[in-house]
Measured scan of single mutants.
Amino acid sequence: RRRVRAILPYTKVPDTDEISFLKGDMFIVHNELEDGWMWVTNLRTDEQGLIVEDLVEEVGR
Protein backbone atom coordinates (compact mmCIF):
# COMPACT_ATOMS: atom_id res chain seq x y z
CA ARG A 1 0.00 0.00 0.00
CA ARG A 2 1.02 3.56 -0.63
CA ARG A 3 2.47 5.43 2.34
CA VAL A 4 2.85 9.17 2.75
CA ARG A 5 4.33 11.45 5.44
CA ALA A 6 3.00 14.81 6.64
CA ILE A 7 5.29 17.71 5.74
CA LEU A 8 3.19 20.21 7.74
CA PRO A 9 0.82 19.91 10.71
CA TYR A 10 -2.92 20.26 10.11
CA THR A 11 -5.99 20.87 12.28
CA LYS A 12 -9.21 19.44 10.91
CA VAL A 13 -12.24 21.52 10.07
CA PRO A 14 -14.96 20.69 12.65
CA ASP A 15 -17.84 18.48 11.52
CA THR A 16 -15.96 17.02 8.54
CA ASP A 17 -14.32 13.67 7.80
CA GLU A 18 -10.89 15.32 7.92
CA ILE A 19 -8.32 14.27 10.53
CA SER A 20 -5.79 16.40 12.38
CA PHE A 21 -2.13 15.41 12.28
CA LEU A 22 1.39 16.46 13.18
CA LYS A 23 4.36 17.09 10.91
CA GLY A 24 6.07 13.75 10.40
CA ASP A 25 2.97 11.60 10.90
CA MET A 26 2.82 8.59 8.57
CA PHE A 27 -0.31 7.47 6.75
CA ILE A 28 -1.47 4.45 4.78
CA VAL A 29 -3.49 5.61 1.77
CA HIS A 30 -6.69 3.61 1.23
CA ASN A 31 -8.29 5.68 -1.55
CA GLU A 32 -7.33 8.67 -3.67
CA LEU A 33 -10.32 10.92 -4.21
CA GLU A 34 -11.10 13.91 -6.42
CA ASP A 35 -9.45 17.31 -5.97
CA GLY A 36 -6.35 15.96 -4.22
CA TRP A 37 -8.02 14.36 -1.20
CA MET A 38 -7.05 10.96 0.18
CA TRP A 39 -8.75 8.60 2.64
CA VAL A 40 -6.01 7.42 5.00
CA THR A 41 -5.15 5.84 8.32
CA ASN A 42 -2.77 7.80 10.56
CA LEU A 43 -0.27 5.22 11.84
CA ARG A 44 0.47 7.25 15.00
CA THR A 45 -3.15 7.70 16.13
CA ASP A 46 -4.86 4.85 14.19
CA GLU A 47 -7.48 7.43 13.13
CA GLN A 48 -9.03 7.21 9.66
CA GLY A 49 -10.19 10.17 7.62
CA LEU A 50 -9.51 12.64 4.85
CA ILE A 51 -6.29 14.55 4.24
CA VAL A 52 -5.22 16.72 1.32
CA GLU A 53 -2.22 15.51 -0.68
CA ASP A 54 -0.55 18.96 -0.74
CA LEU A 55 0.42 18.44 2.92
CA VAL A 56 2.18 15.09 2.46
CA GLU A 57 5.12 13.57 0.60
CA GLU A 58 5.67 10.10 -0.81
CA VAL A 59 7.60 7.62 1.31
CA GLY A 60 9.77 5.00 -0.38
CA ARG A 61 8.19 1.57 -0.51
Rank of each mutant, 00 (worst) to 15 (best):
V56T: 13
G60T: 14
I7R: 11
D46T: 13
E57P: 02
G36I: 01
L50W: 11
G36A: 03
D54Y: 08
W37K: 15
M38L: 13
W39S: 08
R44A: 06
R1Q: 05
L55H: 15
N31I: 07
I19H: 03
V59R: 06
D17L: 11
V4E: 01
V29M: 04
V59P: 08
R44T: 06
D35E: 12
E32N: 11
M38Q: 04
V29N: 02
D25F: 02
M26W: 10
N31G: 11
G60R: 09
L8R: 11
L55F: 14
I7T: 10
I19D: 00
D17T: 13
V13E: 14
V4G: 01
R3E: 13
L43I: 13
E18W: 00
M38C: 07
Q48F: 09
V59D: 11
Q48G: 06
W37Y: 14
Q48M: 10
Y10R: 07
R5Q: 13
W37M: 14
T45S: 10
D35C: 08
V52W: 12
G60P: 13
E57L: 06
D46W: 15
T45Y: 02
P14S: 10
D15V: 04
K12D: 03
E34Y: 08
R5I: 11
I28F: 09
L22G: 07
E57W: 01
F27K: 00
V4F: 10
K12E: 07
V59F: 10
R61E: 15
E58D: 13
D17V: 08
R1N: 15
E18K: 05
Q48V: 12
V52G: 15
V40L: 01
N31F: 08
A6V: 01
K23P: 12
E53K: 14
F27L: 07
Q48H: 12
A6K: 02
M26I: 12
G60I: 06
V4Q: 02
P14Q: 11
D25S: 01
D35F: 08
V52P: 15
I7N: 06
G36Q: 04
Q48C: 12
L50E: 05
G24P: 00
G49I: 01
A6P: 00
V29E: 02
H30C: 06
P9A: 13
T11G: 05
N31R: 15
V13T: 15
R61F: 14
F21D: 02
H30T: 07
A6C: 02
P9K: 07
F27A: 01
I7D: 00
L22E: 14
D54N: 14
V40Q: 00
R3G: 05
D15S: 11
V29I: 11
V29S: 02
G24F: 04
Y10A: 04
D15K: 08
L43W: 03
R3A: 06
R5G: 03
L8F: 10
G60H: 11
M38A: 05
L33K: 15
L55I: 07
P9S: 12
D15I: 05
R2V: 07
R3W: 06
L55K: 14
G60S: 11
V4L: 11
W37S: 14
M26V: 13
V40H: 02
G36F: 00
K23G: 07
D25M: 00
R2L: 08
D35R: 12
D17N: 12
E53Y: 09
G36S: 05
D25T: 03
H30P: 03
T41R: 10
Y10F: 04
I19L: 13
I51W: 02
L8T: 09
M38Y: 08
E34R: 15
R1D: 15
R1C: 11
T16R: 05
R44Y: 04
T45N: 13
D46F: 11
D25G: 03
Q48D: 12
T16K: 04
R5C: 11
D46S: 13
E34A: 14
H30V: 06
D15P: 02
I51Y: 02
V56M: 07
D46N: 14
A6M: 03
L43V: 12
G24D: 11
L22R: 12
M26A: 08
I28D: 14
R2P: 08
V59E: 14
T41N: 04
E34K: 13
L55C: 13
L22P: 00
N42P: 01
I19W: 00
D17E: 13
R3N: 09
T11A: 12
Y10S: 04
G24T: 01
T45L: 02
T11I: 11
A6I: 01
L33R: 15
R44M: 06
S20K: 02
D15W: 07
N42M: 04
K23W: 05
D35G: 14
L33F: 12
G24H: 08
D35V: 05
L8W: 08
E32S: 13
D25Q: 03
E58Q: 09
D15T: 07
Q48E: 11
N42C: 10
V59L: 11
M38W: 05
T16P: 01
K23F: 06
E18S: 04
S20N: 09
D35I: 05
K23Y: 07
R3D: 05
G24M: 04
T41W: 06
I7L: 11
N42S: 07
M26C: 12
R3C: 07
G49C: 03
D46M: 13
T41H: 10
T11V: 14
G49W: 00
